[in-house]
Design a binder for these strands. Structure first.
Lengths: 238, 238
DNA sequence: TGCCTGGATATTGGATCCAATCTATCGATG
DNA sequence: CATCGATAGATTGGATCCAATATCCAGGCA
């Protein structure tokens, strides 16, 4: 049953998506790619909140295409566990939960140290400089969306030299998925300053070339955020 | 005219797919699910070889459906990196390469120990018995397809109690992807008996409740296969 | 003779149309 | 008055149809 009153708020606020839409209408060769990218960004940034019903007709109208590219995009997102299909009842944005958060954290805690260990020996001083710059930008950032983006770029900068495209894609995918949760926490609790300390510690270990310490720092960083978030989600009973 | 001089061998041999098709036509609620499952199995089992062009019309005819479910299925498989789209040139089964194999092995070597570590404390004697039975079946198996299936079930049995659905799905997905490569090696080199020793060692460590040893055994097992395969693929220059 | 150009063909990408089915409202009945 | 059932509406799943584009082959030209 939908939330009692408020029958169907048509949770798709075209407003939130319009920014994504307008930005890069021409950037993609096919409409399907465009719709897929826009919807993924919409889900990850929270413009499409968890549980929101995704009506094909509505989305098609919002994107100015027919239902078909929307359907194909939804299938791709289903394969990425970002949307769920219910037979003849349509698709909804995948729900978030404490269990799912723990799941994603476990995956991150497995993938990211592996990527870092492969990448670390090949990182250059330019990479370190970029990573440090990104930490600095995070200090000044207040918008959750930009913060997530900076955090993701910081992490991926350190992993970038791993030379394993699939591993990196998987890591980035789950880093982005974690963003959904971190944004949630960010909005409720505000920015946790210890995170920045962890970023500095991680970068320092990388600069020192200490792979074990760096990997430990990454895992610690991931699990610390997870602990914080689990407690928060647990309290809300969600 | 479709046949013409048969310039393109139409690498899709409906013969190979028919087994998959006939087996469970009724099992799926939607045609898209059915096509997606059948094609995924076809790719992973090698019935659809790497590089094979996937003509929508042809697949639709083979499955007895229209092009639309095929298109949606192809999009899902694209998201799983099993097929590649070339604009206006169609989709092909994703190529295999030494680099990709190393990529998948790196992912497995990261995910599977994590899953095992979570699962190990909760494994029951029944689980161990099933795992041992699967090893036994592998001894007698000669068909590469069944062998891959048994190997996958053996591994997943040990991870099953991790209680992390996404982590397990990801692990199984990459275990299946690795199967594509192992089948390749299997056909060329025959079965490598040391693999069974590794399976026994892994199971023994699990039974002893020694998480560190078990994880080390898994990683060793994965990397040993990878080393063998990389050498083989490297020789062929693929 | 070799290369470039142009048209024919095949195949995909996208739109529209139809059928199946789930939801919801409204009415009948115990 | 509550509960159950039927009918109407909405929405998805699938099929067919049209447009856009890449490939292929033939023919002309340097």
């Amino acid at each position: 049953m939908p939330p009692a009153s408020d029958a169907r708020p048509s949770a798709l606020n075209a407003m939130a998506l319009s920014a994504v839409i307008e930005r890069n209408r021409r950037q993609f060769r096919t409409a399907t790619e465009f719709v897929e990218a826009a919807m993924r960004e919409g889900i990850l940034t929270g413009a499409l909140p968890a549980g929101a019903p995704l009506r094909q007709e509505e989305l098609a109208a919002a994107f100015g295409v027919s239902r078909m590219p929307v359907r194909e995009a939804l299938r791709q997102l289903e394969a990425r566990a970002l949307v769920e299909f219910h037979p003849h009842r349509g698709a909804v944005v995948a729900e978030i939960s404490a269990g799912d958060s723990a799941d994603i954290s476990a995956i991150r805690a497995a993938l990211e140290p592996a990527a870092l260990r492969l990448s670390l020996p090949r990182l250059t001083t330019d990479d370190f400089a970029l990573a440090e710059e990104l930490i600095g930008e995070m200090d000044a950032e207040t918008d959750p969306g930009r913060m997530g983006e900076l955090n993701r770029r910081f992490h991926m900068t350190l992993y970038a030299r791993a030379g394993r495209p699939r591993l990196l894609a998987l890591a980035e995918q789950h880093l982005a998925a974690a963003d959904r949760y971190l944004r949630f926490q960010f909005a409720a609790l505000g920015y946790h300053p210890r995170s920045q300390d962890e970023h500095h510690a991680l970068l320092a270990a990388c600069r020192a070339g200490n792979a074990d310490a760096a990997c430990a720092a990454v895992v610690n960083h991931i699990l610390a955020a997870e602990t914080l978030l689990t407690a928060f989600l647990g309290e809300r009973g969600s």
